[in-house]
Amino acid sequence: MPAVTQGSPRTAPSVFDLIGNTPLIRLSSFESGLRNVELWAKAEWRNPGGSVKDRPAARMILDGERSGALTRDKILLDATSGNTGIAYAMIGAARGYRVRLCVPENVTPERKRILHAFGAEIVFTDPMEGSDGAIVRAKAMYAESPDLYFYPDQYSNPGNWKSHYDTTAPEIIEQTNGRLTHFVAGLGTSGTFVGVGRRLREFSSSIRLISVQPDSPLHGLEGLKHMATAIVPAIYDPTLADEDLGVATEEAFDLTRRLARAGVFVGISSGANLAGALQVARQVSDAVIVVVFCDGGEKYLSERFWDERGSSGADQ
């Protein structure tokens, strides 16, 4: 272990300053059987709020402060199924803003407790309507009292994808010394995929961009959206991806368990993204694949799938 970790500051004036500069971690144990393919995970759970969403939340809040749309008297309002809410709540707490979040009632208890710990107010929405129900509610609340709220609207705010264009993508280029050949990320708001994808495309037109979606409108892939049946985010650019892969929830569960057994404790969407990356990896040779691991496993500890047997049969 090195005495000093490069790129990771040892002191910071606030949690805000710890956002970004996440490590890239080699997934060697998933490379066997591949033809000279390197698999690297962007470890977004290392952000202070525990997920990739710290980046867009920070950017949208900063943009709001700079434009004057976000002032001390405003309440930050948005719809979220979890991680963006946690990021808003953390940054709001650190910078002194009230935060009110529309969240489907069936989010995991861990998420509710984290939001509560940061002091955010939660407006629960109908679990039958999923994350789209939360979006509809937030829009209605804002329309009713536009002066009360700062409503960044993560699904439509260009700051969401720009945060990745300006930070995540340059980090990946530097960390791979520009060698990456494929980038794989899941679609939720689509901010990560669109922002990183656009920057990588500018850097090298030969880099393949692969998006990952649930294979069914009814799925267990927290944070990911089935675009064909969901409210499509305004920032989504369907022309960007070279390939768009559907992943079954069962496969994501299986890989999430296998990652934990390889010492990488991450959330279900990371398992889904790895499923997509492996689909790509098996078809190519001499490649450097970077896949986004959006958050850690802690928020999913109450999930049943940890106790189920995987298709590999090795874990129980």
Binding site: S81, G82, P104, E105, N106, V107, T108, P109, R111, P127, M128, G130, S131, L218, H219, G220, E222, I268, K299, Y300, S302, E303, R304, F305
Partner: peptide, 12 residues
Amino acid sequence: LSIVPSVAGGVR
């Protein structure tokens, strides 16, 4: 009966 989507696993 209700079929309830899992946001994650759908514990409610």
